[in-house]
């Protein structure tokens, strides 16, 4: 479903992504892990086109999007959430999700009908809100939302674009253990047919929801394999996981 081949990126002399390849089949659940500054977010940005790769290829569902703009890649089926909340702060939860749903339905060319009259948009937004446990706070402005709820909305916006591949960048970052548990449940409950690529530091989440893992270190792939393989990999134990799984 998602295939990245030999992606490279450097900022000046700093090589941030070094020949990274990755393949996620339809319905696959793939994690990208690695220490801070390993280049995980940059790798996501290369996939979505927010940063232009120096070289390499990205294919989604058979469609080569290597040179497409970020919005074209999103329309091709890449939906992402951000490590740092990146929401429409002056809107309510419902308005956020409705906006994302409208983009998914590509309604932007319609200028002669009131936005409020699109009941399909509202339905879709409410459905996503249910999925990410925000049904109770639909009318709350995002800026008044708790941080945990904002993180849930972050995932909700990505979901609302009805992606073929859902890309989550540290969905639990900065969350309390309780909030993390809610997020873990949320991600596990997503339909099994959805392809997911997730960056995560919390090993419980990684092992809980994924079947394959890529470990990035200094921009290059250290190890790639099934959860078991990575868990048992000597080099990963040494370099990264430490006591996290002992």
């Amino acid at each position: 479903m998602l295939k990245a081949t030999s992606l490279n990126k450097s900022f000046g002399s700093l090589v941030v992504t070094d020949n990274v390849s990755l393949h996620v089949p339809a319905g696959g659940r793939h994690a990208v892990i690695g220490p801070n500054g390993a280049g995980k977010t940059t790798f996501f940005n290369l996939l979505t086109g927010e940063i232009k790769a120096n070289s390499g290829q990205v294919v989604i569902d058979g469609q080569d999007i290597s040179s497409a703009s970020p919005d074209a890649r999103a329309r091709a089926g890449l939906g992402r959430s951000f490590q740092k909340n990146n929401l429409f702060m002056e809107m309510t939860v419902l308005e956020n999700l409705a906006t994302a749903s409208a983009v998914a339905m590509q309604l932007g060319k319609i200028f002669w009908k009131s936005f409020q009259t699109f009941s399909a948009v509202r339905q879709a937004a409410e459905e996503i809100a249910g999925l990410v446990n925000l049904a109770d706070v639909l009318k709350v402005p995002v800026k008044n939302l708790s941080y945990g709820h904002q993180r849930q909305l972050e995932v909700g916006l990505a979901l609302a674009t009805r992606p073929k591949v859902l890309m989550l960048d540290e969905p639990t970052s900065g969350m309390s253990p309780e909030e993390t548990a809610v997020m873990l449940k949320l991600i596990s409950s997503l339909p099994r047919t959805l392809t997911i690529l997730i960056i995560e530091h919390d090993m419980e989440v990684v092992f809980g929801v994924t079947d394959r893992i890529t470990v990035l270190d200094y921009g290059s792939v250290l190890v790639e394999g099934t959860v078991e393989e990575v868990r048992n990999s000597e080099i990963v134990r040494q370099r990264y996981l430490g006591e996290a799984i002992s």
């Binding site: 919005d71 990146n86 429409f88 936005f115």
Partner: peptide, 29 residues
């Protein structure tokens, strides 16, 4: 008033608030 209350108008408001997010949702800003 009609135009700004339409989906088109909503896109513009959203672009104003957060252009990057709008782009990554798939709107050609």
């Amino acid at each position: 008033d009609l135009i700004m209350n339409s989906p088109f108008g909503r896109y513009l408001l959203a672009i104003h608030q957060n252009e990057n997010r709008m782009r990554s949702l798939g709107a050609p800003i």
